[in-house]
Design a protein around this nucleic acid. Sequence first.
DNA 1: ATGGAGTTGATACGTTCGTATCCCAATGGA
DNA 2: TCCATTGGGATACGAACGTATCAACTCCAT
Lengths: 227, 227
Amino acid sequence: MRPASRGRRPVYCSRACQARAYRSRKNPPVSVVVDEPTARQRLIVEAVWRIAAERGLDMATVREIAVEAGVSARVVQYHFKGKHDLLVIALRLLHRDNERRARDRIAALRDASNPRVLLRATLEELLPLDDQRRTSLRVMTAYYTRSLTDPALASVFLHDESPLEDMVTALISAAGTRRSIDAAREADLLVAGVTGLGLDLLHQRRTRADVRRTLDYHLDRILQTQP
Amino acid sequence: MRPASRGRRPVYCSRACQARAYRSRKNPPVSVVVDEPTARQRLIVEAVWRIAAERGLDMATVREIAVEAGVSARVVQYHFKGKHDLLVIALRLLHRDNERRARDRIAALRDASNPRVLLRATLEELLPLDDQRRTSLRVMTAYYTRSLTDPALASVFLHDESPLEDMVTALISAAGTRRSIDAAREADLLVAGVTGLGLDLLHQRRTRADVRRTLDYHLDRILQTQP
DNA sequence: ATGGAGTTGATACGTTCGTATCCCAATGGA
DNA sequence: TCCATTGGGATACGAACGTATCAACTCCAT
């Protein structure tokens, strides 16, 4: 590596320091988070989420993230390879957390409840109905937009191995449908529609009651009405 | 105004220049675009659109906008009060242009075509089916995300005086519906759903044929099928 | 021709950003 | 005891950004 044209100019205090610097330059303290982050990494990633949700992804600078996480900027620098990797990891972790949370919440309903409640709960995971989902949706929206010009982020969105539409299709089929209904087509519009309604809700362009009414109508329409 | 703590320090070449500077400081060359932009303003605004669509709204810096528009950065500075105002104006103009284009395109179909074609064309205005709509949707998406943390942009989205949902509701009602169908609820999910499908299309998470199939299915479902 | 108004060129200022570097403290194995 | 590794503090660097300012140019009425 060249004498470096950026950062403080190397004026070593001793040969030991020089050797140490050389070593650290050869293999930097990269910590690639693949599956499970350390406690400190989670702290920082959650700070990214909060800033992205409240002030936008642009405001998530290294210094601001550090302040929000209650650590120094050097710590952010140390625990991630760079800002971009931090953002990618933060998106992956949010994605994973959302899936886990949704699975848990729906699994809790799975026994002793009719299919309509299950389908409804599944779709409502996409709506900003509480602080957690609201924050998550805001962060996801920011990431979606950025992913349009950032292939690394786009791949996180696209490599989703369990499309939500399939789950909704299965739920509709299992519930039993009224007439000649194509469960897959209904699931497509339902998932896309609930996503769109969620964005309107985020903007307060619709009221929560309005969304609920629309959702109820279409659930009634698709599913068999019992009594 | 104070002697200014930013920019070049005032060292006047003559009393005439000093007087001119004083005058220009008192009433800056603000050009507030309300309805119709000048040719130069349009040039710059369109540069903003192109950059926002291709590289994201973050990359739309004053200098980059100037290069894209083929003018100097000073020109951008001169013709708008500041970067933020430029962004707001660019959004308003895009909004207006989209409405005009949609109205024209649909008006061209209004005679000698059945309601289904009309409704379909209306919804397809939201889909990235050609370069123009694709660019527009990318820019709008970027703006939507930014509007979540920028009240000035949010107000442009929210003060929309002619909700698309109403128009779709009217089209459904006018076309005549099959059974007991609530046109307003159908319009809500259709508009929100097509928006969501458009985002998937932008991401290439769905194919164009897939979207077309889903849309066809639901149009068939809602409207009376004519022999 | 003179000069004012509108517009553009050239340049600089202050801030913020991502990151590089030097340094030190704590820890733990040899 | 010694020393390498890990984790973090302090600071600095170069780039880019938004913007302010002076100077100069083009019209055009006087």
